[in-house]
């Protein structure tokens, strides 16, 4: 069976009058297996959206090849577009139509039934807003409607381009549950995001993208493991004597100020057991390395979402 997506050496350069030449996509290759939840993570302007638009078939690359479900996305064929669902960054709706009319129109375009449209509204939690005009929906509701439109054709492969951008934390969590459910149904999901925690929470594998290039691809856990970074354990000051602190640090880095003591350890289990037996767990915080540290490590630059 073909991979869901195979991308080889994509390149796209924009020539702006003021900006000069910008290599938006600079030699990008990756492969997404069927059923996978794949994330493309990077700061704004990293080239995520351009890459996605080329893969979807909205833009043509200067060079490189794309295979979607074993076929080229260009020229457009209804056979392929019928199997792929897309949510774009801007919510593209027919003006002055209600949520229900919107999803029905998209259902008809994908050759799906009316009931399928209603089911999708239900799935994204918009059933009670079916009669509300699209422009009157909140940002999160618009994103969910746009995802419903992407799903209405029962696609095997779903592209989501920064679906949670500009949403409040609660709306973002709700959307995460929805995306997990979509993937759990067996659909391949490709997500772009500039939120570290989102990629960590959702993706099977993540491609870290910066300045038009994919710097590394791995699972979030694999990235962190490969980093071999210490775990930072913090407790409130005043529970341990200076001697005991040095003893517990066992030669690894430690820092103390008036309010906290911070250990950096590669054996957090041993340290935590010792702290517990000392009864010194007040103000405890444990922070393992995350994708933010990975980004710093991979690109040599501080994360700037």
């Amino acid at each position: 069976m073909d991979a869901a997506i195979e991308v080889a050496d994509l390149r796209k350069t924009y020539r702006g009058r003021r900006t000069g030449e910008v290599r938006a996509v600079d030699g990008v290759s990756f492969r997404v297996e069927r059923g996978e939840f794949f994330g493309i993570l990077g700061p704004n302007g990293a080239g995520k959206t351009t890459t996605l638009e080329i893969v979807e078939g909205l833009r043509r690359p200067d060079s490189g090849t794309v295979r979607l479900l074993g076929r080229s996305p260009w020229p457009h064929s209804p056979e392929l577009t019928g199997r792929v669902g897309v949510q774009l960054q801007a919510s593209a709706f027919f003006e002055f139509l209600s949520a229900e009319e919107q999803i029905e129109t998209f259902a008809e375009l994908y050759g799906a039934s009316k009931t399928r449209g209603a089911e999708m509204l239900e799935l994204v939690g918009l059933a009670e807003h079916a009669n509300v005009r699209c422009e009157k929906l909140s940002g999160g509701q618009q994103q969910r409607l746009s995802i419903a439109c992407a799903l209405v054709g029962d696609p095997e492969l779903v592209f989501l381009d920064e679906p949670t951008a500009a949403l409040d934390p609660q709306a973002r969590r709700n959307l995460w549950d929805l995306m997990r459910a979509i993937n759990a149904e067996g659909r391949t999901v490709v997500l772009t995001t500039h939120y570290m925690e989102e990629a960590e929470a959702l993706c099977d594998r993540v491609a870290i993208m910066d300045a038009g290039k994919i710097r590394a691809v791995d699972s979030p856990a694999g990235f962190v493991k490969g980093l071999d970074a210490p775990t930072r354990v913090t407790v409130a000051a005043g529970q341990l004597t200076g001697e005991r602190i040095d003893e517990l640090a066992a030669g690894e880095a430690v820092s103390a100020d008036e309010t906290t003591v911070v250990f950096e350890t590669r054996d957090p289990r041993k340290l935590l057991t010792a702290l517990a037996s000392d009864g010194a767990l007040e103000g405890l915080a444990v922070r393992t390395a995350n994708l933010e540290d990975v980004f710093l490590h991979v690109t040599g630059r501080e994360w700037r979402a």
Partner: peptide, 18 residues
């Protein structure tokens, strides 16, 4: 101008309708 703003045409290009 509306289409430029809301990208409706872009979205429709990715449906089976031409």
């Amino acid at each position: 101008v509306d289409w430029k703003r809301d990208k409706l045409l872009r979205r429709l290009r990715l449906t089976p309708a031409s």
